[in-house]
Nucleic acid binder design. Structure first.
Length: 545
RNA sequence: GCGCCCGUAGCUCAGCGGAUAGAGUGCCGGCCUGCGGAGCCGGAGGCCGCAGGUUCAAAUCCUGCCGGGCGCACCA
């Protein structure tokens, strides 16, 4: 049984006898180890009902709980209830973890539920930058986390391969094409200045010769058809580099063709939520407390990005997802509020859609590209970053901070193959254990059956602490998923490795008689959880490095 | 001006109602005849942006201010 449940159960059974049943029984880890292994603030929550000070309540409970076989000591300190666990209790925990194996940490709360995670969804106007890299890593890790909880997860990329931006891109390419023919044309206002269009321009100069001297309707069509697939290929290369793949790609055009835009518009109009002004159709958002009324249909009759996005979300709803999580950059806040409002007006449940909003990435020690812009051609391509620092470090660094914080990507640190680098610190713990196992096998010290071992030699402080830490893993997975906070998993793994390394440095594993198999079992548990955690992050857990 | 996010150790960041505020890195000082020293141990370092308020209890919640980021297009 998990430790939290154990403590909760013990408290609840005492409270039952007193005729009390609080809705929740908090169980925490005390801030200092001397205070105990686990603690509860339950006494604070019962003071009102019992009309006694917290310390009095705690003392009363402590007396009742002291006889519980799982605890060696239960103390009341300043209203807190502090528990010290018997080693045997922790040995039982370790045994259960080993029994669960790779299933350890999985949850049930998502069982039978379909979840869509939409992320990246960058326009095909250029390769992905490191900014998209954060989103790619975040979305992918969130998807992994929710899979752990039992959700059936679909990773989806929304592709906007039409509209004004693509037109500007095509014209920018055309300008590069003319340039290659020795007929320099300016890149259009608001166009794309990146170098990546230059070789394509040269290629098209070869292919077409002087066939398109003017930027006209025909050139527009041809260059658009040439440019989009090439941009997509670049994006796919970037995604592959960082190890992300999507289950579904949805194009803006698909949504329009399904008639969903028309339907959304009709329903919003029937509800009186839109109005016409200056030939355009606007959503009445201000009366619902939003800062502005956005345009849904331009005066030329075409739908705005927002309009299609709303229709896209109706589509997601129709497709039967129970929940949708969109990962988006901080520049989309307003749109998020507008989409949510529109969905509400369409009668879609409020909790159908959640946003994981993240701030931007800055590169430390990279003058000139600190402020990136795809249009201006000032960026670092994601694939180039991965080629430089590796997939593991890239993914890890991208999710090691909470999404809503700015991320300073320390290029030099990510590249370091030493333990200052947190990725290596965690991976190295895994590798070290693998190495000990190899040595144990070679010496014939590796136990046949880990599950039927005598774990009683595990009594050292780090040994018990390691088991305590292993016990937290399922909670960390749940918290990281529920709070869109993969960084909690990074922190946890660093912490686990941070207990293991000193232990390993101080305590010998092999050739220690009865202690050896028990310690190997403990290390097996540590290795298992490191492996599970790293896998969720999409980071390798190497046997050798 | 309006909206959202962020101000915690020199730096990068956890903690987001509870007990003496943590980690990594950097700095100072120790530890290499055994399973990977790609390591380990110890130390110094903080008005938790500022000011009020709520609470038995605030880094954490509320209000105002100050500083930084992002947005505020009939772009996406």
């Amino acid at each position: 049984m998990r430790l939290e449940a154990l403590v909760q159960g013990s408290i609840r059974s005492v409270l039952d006898r007193l005729g009390l049943s609080p809705p929740e029984i908090p169980v925490d880890r005390p801030p200092h180890r001397e205070l105990g292994d686990l603690s509860s603030r339950i006494a604070f929550l019962l003071t009102k009902e019992l009309k006694k000070p917290p310390q009095g309540v705690a003392e009363e409970l402590a007396k009742e709980l002291s006889s519980h076989p799982a605890f060696s000591q239960v103390q009341a300190v300043q209203g807190f209830l502090n528990f010290r666990l018997r080693p045997q209790t922790l040995h039982g925990v370790l045994k259960e973890i080993l029994q669960e194996g790779l299933a350890y940490g999985k949850g049930e709360e998502g069982r039978g539920k379909r979840l869509q995670v939409e992320f990246v969804s960058s326009n095909p106007t250029g390769p992905l930058t490191i900014g998209h890299g954060r989103q790619a890593a975040l979305g992918d890790v969130l998807a992994n986390l929710f899979s752990e909880l039992g959700f059936q997860v679909t990773r989806e990329y929304y592709l906007n391969d039409e509209g004004r931006q693509i037109e500007l891109l095509a014209q920018s390419l055309w300008a590069r094409y003319r340039q290659a023919l020795g007929d320099p044309k300016p890149i259009p206002e608001g166009g794309y200045h990146g170098d990546y269009l230059i070789p394509i321009g040269e290629e098209l100069a070869q292919k077409f010769g002087n066939a398109y001297p003017e930027w006209n309707a025909e050139a527009k069509k041809v260059f658009r058809e040439e440019v989009v697939p090439r941009m997509l290929r670049m994006i796919e290369e970037d995604l592959e580099a960082i190890g992300v793949s999507f289950d579904v790609w949805t194009r803006e055009g698909d949504i329009i063709r399904k008639g969903l835009v028309d339907e959304v518009l009709r329903r919003l109009r029937e509800g009186g939520h839109v109005y016409e002004k200056d030939g355009a159709i606007w959503l009445s958002a201000k009366i619902h407390g939003l800062p502005r009324d956005p345009v849904l249909i331009r005066s030329d009759g075409t739908p705005t990005y927002l309009m299609v996005d709303i229709a896209y979300h109706l589509d997601k709803f129709r497709r039967g997802f129970d929940w949708v999580v969109d990962v988006q950059g901080a520049d989309h806040v307003e749109e998020q509020q507008e989409v949510k409002l529109a969905l509400r007006l369409l009668g879609i449940p409020e909790n159908f859609l959640s946003y994981c909003l993240h701030q931007f990435v800055t590169l430390k020690g990279a003058e000139g590209i600190e402020k990136m812009s795809t249009r201006a051609g000032r960026f670092l391509r994601l694939k180039d970053l991965v080629d430089e620092v590796g997939r593991d470090a890239t993914r890890y660094f991208m999710v090691m901070r909470k999404p809503e914080s700015h991320l300073v990507f320390d290029f030099a640190l990510a590249k370091k193959q030493s333990l200052e680098n947190p990725v290596y610190y965690v991976q190295y713990a895994h590798t070290r254990i693998a190495s000990v196992f190899r040595e144990a096998q070679a010496r014939g010290e590796f136990p046949e059956d880990l599950l039927s071992l005598d774990l009683s030699p595990l009594t050292g402080p780090e040994e018990l602490q390691l088991i305590m830490e292993l016990d937290r893993f399922p909670d960390v997975v749940r918290l990281a998923a529920r709070g869109f906070s993969p960084h909690l998993l990074c922190e946890y793994l660093e912490n686990l490795a941070g207990i293991f390394h000193p232990y390993y440095a101080r305590v010998r594993i092999l050739g220690q008689g009865r202690a050896t198999p028990a310690r190997l079992a403990l290390l097996f548990g540590v290795k298992l959880v490191l492996f599970r955690g790293l896998s969720i992050l999409g980071v390798r857990a190497p046997e050798e490095m």
